[in-house]
Design a protein around this nucleic acid. Structure first.
Length: 552
RNA sequence: UGGGGCGUCGCCAAGCGGUAAGGCACCGGAUUUUGAUUCCGGCAUUCCCAGGUUCGAUCCCUGGCGCCCCAGCCA
């Protein structure tokens, strides 16, 4: 499956090691429990790598379980997308994925059990009344007037709720715990609400649906999960998680919380990502600018890069902010190994080689560090395109600059060394063409007596193919978009720039999903949606590291 | 001002009473037909602050300070 992931220690492994050693558990069973109400994002990837990673490392199992307890927000489209993403990330959940909805009957029976035990009651206050009577952070709540209904009455009302005799919101099943509890979650939390909604799997079979708190622990219990790993916000829910399992007298897994991922220049809430999609600020969940797994896949981020990112950032309990550049660096790390090298010019400047009048098919390696991966033919002629950035009429520092300039020499990547003899300007004073001479004795070898440090990429004008290229930048231009008055105001208007590249002809054969390094520029992936045979459209996954840009 | 957490290098993160791992970033230097990659070297006398216990504290105690989460019939 995935390559070697050494994986450093973290506090969760310490807990598991202790549990294994003390004999509390003999095996490790985890689970990844997404709600199918949106696409997976990089934050989910962290949880996936953690949960599946632990299962692999301890030779246990990790279940993929859809937490589909709220039919008003869930959809099969999301189920399918989530399955694809988990698989693509390189993980295996075994036979079939599991669903909370498969446990609805059992959950219902358990609710009856708590009612009979006097631990649950049907409340008939409306939502507003419940809110008011819940109290505040510093004031205890007050008991509902319906709190002491008899078991019989509760049973009867709950039965009617189940049968669909009541409209949404008219009644609710609550756990009878303590309206004065300092932990708000224990102030008689809701267990079941009435929802006359079509469920993506059970259709209209149910009119009542369990709340997260009344479902999650029992789901874990049914599946024999040993370590139920979730994010920090659920820490306050743990006493409730344990309360239900204890009152139900069933096996109680251990919940462990870790800090969720925060990535700079992006938002991570599904609600906001959904809004970006619905309001068409992006082209869809898999828009290459989205922090979704599918967006990153389309952008050209390899699964291995996402895994190594998750390994690199570690797992802890303190709120952490990871810079987007860390992710990009993981992408480079992978792509540098795997991507074939090609030449393409994004911002063309014409060059005429004055002493060269033939056409040659030069040999250029697919990957200089991996010669066994072969080579391709690179056509060379006397009219070329190079990148505008590689010429300066007046270089700043004679010493530090080693690109093209008047009287300067430079190596054409995979070709000859050329010297700029002259340059031509248009009426606006802009350089439009360079006249260069080539040292014809420098193909595949260095000249004697002088060193030419600069190397530039190029493409033969008559052979070049025009290909659409999409340059992506961060979706937001504020480090923490959530800190803006409205996160939408932090959207980067220039996050997508559509342009064209003049590319070497071999790139015409590029297949959807393939990634190439355009030498000295960056990594570009053939878009899987908008490309056709012989008509590749390229997405820039990430630039190359550029220390020269930093020096300037 | 109720409850639950967190605070170790610029960013993550080990450490669990015996004298500060590692990764990334950064800074040097070497190799290089990608100013990329690779390679070598450097990079916390100090662990939010102040007291205390101890032969010895990042780890224990006390008191501060700062930050995060909780008042959905969302998960």
């Amino acid at each position: 499956m995935s390559t070697s992931e050494p994986s450093s220690s973290n506090f969760i492994k310490t807990i598991i090691d202790e549990d294994l050693e003390s004999g509390k558990y003999q095996k490790v069973i985890t689970r990844f429990p997404p709600e199918p109400n949106g696409y997976l994002h990089i934050g989910h990837a962290k949880s996936i790598c953690l949960n599946f990673g632990l299962a692999t490392e301890y030779k246990g199992r990790c279940n993929l379980r859809f937490d589909d307890t709220n039919p008003t927000k869930e959809d099969d489209e999301y189920v399918e997308a989530i399955k694809e993403d988990v698989q693509w990330l390189g993980f295996d959940w075994g036979k079939e994925p599991l669903f909370a909805s498969d446990y609805f009957e059992q959950l219902y029976q358990w609710a009856l059990q708590l009612i009979k035990k006097g631990k649950a009651y049907v409340d008939s206050q409306n939502a507003e009344e419940m809110r008011v009577n819940r109290g505040t952070l510093t004031q205890a709540g007050t008991d509902s007037p319906y709190r002491n209904r008899s078991v019989e009455e509760n049973l009867e009302l709950f039965e009617k709720m189940k049968n669909g005799d009541f409209p949404d919101g008219s009644h609710i099943l609550r756990a009878k715990i303590d309206m004065a509890a300092p932990n708000m979650n224990l102030r008689d939390p809701a267990m079941y609400r009435i929802l006359h909604a079509q469920h993506h799997r059970t259709g209209d079979k149910w009119c009542i649906y369990p709340m997260y708190d009344f479902a999650h622990g029992q789901e874990d219990s049914i599946e024999g999960v040993t370590h139920s790993i979730c994010t920090l916000e659920f820490e306050d829910h743990r006493p409730l998680y344990e309360w239900f399992l204890k009152e139900l007298e069933i096996y109680s897994p251990q919940q462990i919380e870790f800090a969720r991922l925060n990535l700079s220049y992006t938002v991570m809430s599904k609600r906001k990502l959904l809004q970006l999609v619905n309001d068409q600020h992006v082209e869809g969940w898999d828009d290459p600018r989205m922090p979704t797994v599918s967006g990153m896949r389309r952008r050209g981020y390899p699964a291995a890069a996402i895994r190594s990112f998750c390994e690199r950032i570690g797992v802890g309990r303190s709120a952490s902010w990871i810079d987007l550049s860390v992710l990009e660096d993981c992408v480079r790390e992978q792509l540098n190994e795997t991507a074939f090298r090609r030449q393409a010019v994004l911002n063309p400047l014409k060059v005429t080689i004055t002493n060269y009048d033939k056409i040659e098919q030069l040999d250029a390696p697919n990957h200089p560090q991996q010669p066994e991966r072969g080579s391709r033919k690179l056509p060379m002629s006397n009219e070329l395109w190079i990148d505008r950035d590689d010429f300066m009429e007046d270089p700043p520092s004679k010493k530090k600059y080693f690109r093209l300039g008047p009287e300067r020499e430079v190596r054409l990547r995979n070709s000859y060394i050329i010297k700029c003899e002259d340059f031509i300007k248009d009426e606006n004073g802009e350089v439009v063409e360079l006249k260069c001479s080539a040292d014809l004795d420098t193909l595949g070898k260095n000249p004697e007596g002088r060193k030419v440090k600069g190397i530039i990429h190029w493409v033969s004008a008559q052979h070049a193919v025009k290909v659409p290229v999409r340059i992506y930048d961060r979706l937001f231009n504020q480090e923490n978009p959530d800190k803006a008055e409205n996160y939408l105001s932090a959207l980067n208007p220039d996050s997508l720039q559509v342009t064209e590249a003049l590319a070497e002809p071999s790139l015409l054969e590029a297949k959807a999903g393939e990634t190439f390094q355009f030498e000295r520029v960056g990594y570009f992936t053939v878009d899987s949606k908008d490309s056709a045979a012989e008509k590749p459209v390229f997405n820039r996954a990430v630039t190359l590291r550029d220390t020269w840009a930093k020096m300037k």
